[in-house]
């Protein structure tokens, strides 16, 4: 069971211009096997919250627990897919996907077996021997996804994994991520600034405010389990989109104003 439990999380950063509260008073839960998207204006602390859950950043106060165990540092049960280009250019696709397994000391035969499974899962079969430089941005992000999935973590955290990709690739990859999730029963927290993406993929959408980041709205996505692109034009989808957008709009404006007064 891999429930993500957040209890009154607060994260402060020291910057040259003083202390910044990035995240404040976040108490939420992602049920085991659930898929939650986190949306918010840029600079609102979405990525910070994700880093806290992954154990890469320590919360200033509050508790994070995954599967009932407090998170204080990165662990094998939690996989992260980064926004930035994170494939290793000197390794082939196969070697990239085996990276985390190799670090974990998994024996060679099992490394290959699990990597093959993950490569197949993300649709990269036939590209095992390619180097990342030979692949498109979307395919490289699949490699990063496969690297994380190969560890078979109970929780997968995705930090705007498709932000650098074009719209079509985003939609394709999003559908695949949802497909993989439905088969794997992993718990997923997906950070994005794309409202449609958030609604299409998840069971629940959390809306985060501008700094200090708080969860200001939680919206259950009561769309059918099987979703394709045509659902975007349905009234139910539009209603959800409007609700998320109206929550977000205020915050985005506030964010702009604060950034303007600061400069």
């Amino acid at each position: 069971m891999s429930t993500i439990q957040l209890d009154d999380i607060r994260v402060e950063f020291d910057t040259p211009s003083g202390k910044v509260v990035a995240v404040n008073g976040v108490t939420q839960q992602v049920p085991s096997g659930g898929f939650v998207s986190l949306v918010g204006p840029s600079g609102c602390g979405k990525s910070t919250l994700l880093a806290v859950i992954s154990g890469l950043t320590r919360a200033t106060s509050g508790q994070v627990a995954v599967g009932g165990k407090a998170v204080t540092r990165p662990g094998r049960g939690i996989g992260v897919v980064f926004q930035e280009e994170s494939t290793l250019p000197w390794r082939t696709v196969q070697e990239n996907v085996q990276f985390a397994l190799q670090i974990a000391g998994v024996d060679k035969g099992e490394q290959v077996e699990r990597a093959n499974w993950a490569i197949d899962l993300v649709g990269l079969k036939g590209f095992e021997k390619s180097y990342p430089s030979m692949l498109s941005g979307g395919m490289r992000q699949r490699v990063a996804l496969a690297r994380t999935l190969a560890l078979e973590p109970g929780v997968v955290l995705m930090d705007e994994p498709f932000a650098a990709l074009d719209q079509q690739t985003r939609i394709f990859l999003g559908a695949e991520v949802r497909d993989i999730w439905q088969r794997s029963q992993q718990t997923v927290l997906f950070v994005t600034h794309d409202i449609s993406e958030a609604i299409l993929l998840s069971q629940q959408v959390w809306v985060m405010s501008y700094r200090p980041g708080r969860i200001i709205d939680v919206i259950d996505v009561d769309l059918p389990e099987h979703r394709d692109a045509s659902i975007v034009s349905s009234p139910a989808f539009n209603q959800l989109h409007n609700r998320v957008w109206s929550s977000l709009q205020e915050e985005s404006k506030r964010g702009f104003r604060q950034q303007e007064t600061r400069t």
Binding site: P74, G79, E84, E85, L88, A100, I103, A104
Partner: peptide
């Protein structure tokens, strides 16, 4: 790149693993 450090930490690479599998290949 900062993301390589994050990657290394997220998979709990030891210092030696970090050196052999991330730093040395990056600065090759």
């Amino acid at each position: 790149p900062a993301v390589y450090w994050k990657l290394g930490r997220s998979v709990q690479a030891s210092r030696v693993q970090m050196l052999l599998h991330i730093i040395l290949p990056t600065i090759r």
